Amino acid sequence: MTYFSYTFINVILPIFIIITAGAVLNTAFHLDIKSLTKLQFYILMPSMLFLKVYQSELSSQVITITITVSLIVILLIVGISLLIAKIRGYSKSESSVFINSSTYFNAGNYSLPLIQLLFEDPIAVSIQAIILMAHNIAFFTVGIFTAGSGNRSTKDALLYILKMPLLYVMALAAILKSSGIVIPQPIIDPLTILSSGYMAVALLTLGAQLSETKFLLTNTRLYLSSFVRLLVSPAIAYLIVSLMGVQGILARVIVVAFGAPTAVNVVLSSIELDNEPEFASQAVFTSTVLSMITINLVIMAAFALIPA
């Protein structure tokens, strides 16, 4: 099976089936998208991230390298996206969503299954879990601030970050893990149930939002965002791992992971903050469709350029 058909059948198709279900449900029943978003931000996502951090089995060295490389790449993409937005004269709200849609990727319900299927190695999946953690640290600080600053003051954007539970949840999980504290099973079990529901609800919410979105195929900002997200981002990741001397499965996972399409969280934050949710939805949909082609190019390049 080729990379293209493999990725389409095992990753893209399941994602689009759930997105379509969300669109059909919203068309039929007019779902409360705001409530779905709050459910994810305050219950499902914190549960998922807590378990990912607490259950990670990687060495401290690998974790440190993964987080360091991920944050460097993310900050570089933020800088590049900001420069493009300045050059093209985007408004404050347009710039904020453009930066987020170009920078933050679907590290959970796209990259995780892709890495699991591609490498068939638990180490690779654990590395991706740490990338997910680093990605969310960046998103729920820099990303939320960027989204909030699109139509809020700097002070209000900062206050909004402090209200988000994600950073506190990940910090608590890291403290408990490093302290060797065993969490009782009656607490782990409900967290596991809630965590398993995140992916489905996130994609259903995206489908619901897409069903209310008008697509403008001539929107240059949309294609620029996808170009940076799908091709520039993994190229920068490859450059950073090469400069830092990172090799093998760790380098390959990082490069492939950064080739994922725009994160659903970009849509959720845009809905929550009422900051261009239509463009954010279009960016997620467009980059996900285009990734059917681009992710295969990224995979082939990663395996060809990075020694095993």
Rank of each mutant, 00 (worst) to 15 (best):
T103F: 03
Y223N: 03
N109F: 14
Y90C: 07
L114K: 00
V246R: 03
A134S: 14
I80S: 13
A147K: 07
L172H: 06
V69G: 10
T262H: 00
F8T: 12
A251N: 02
L118D: 04
L158D: 08
S196Q: 06
K155S: 15
L172A: 10
G259N: 03
E278T: 15
M170G: 05
I188M: 08
A28I: 07
L49S: 05
T27D: 15
S111H: 01
K34E: 12
N219L: 12
Y110N: 00
L268Q: 09
A208L: 02
I295N: 04
N219C: 11
L305R: 00
Q116M: 15
A171V: 13
L217I: 08
L203W: 13
V256W: 07
K177F: 04
A251S: 02
I80Q: 13
Q40L: 10
L118F: 07
T192D: 13
L268H: 03
E120N: 07
A200S: 11
T103W: 08
A263E: 04
A257P: 03
L82R: 15
L51G: 03
I9G: 05
L31N: 12
A200P: 10
K214E: 13
G207P: 08
S101C: 11
V228K: 02
V73S: 15
A283P: 01
V53S: 01
K86N: 09
I254A: 05
I144P: 03
A301Q: 08
D121I: 05
K214Y: 14
L166M: 14
T103Y: 04
I271W: 12
L166S: 12
A174V: 09
T27I: 13
T288P: 00
V125S: 05
L51C: 01
N136D: 00
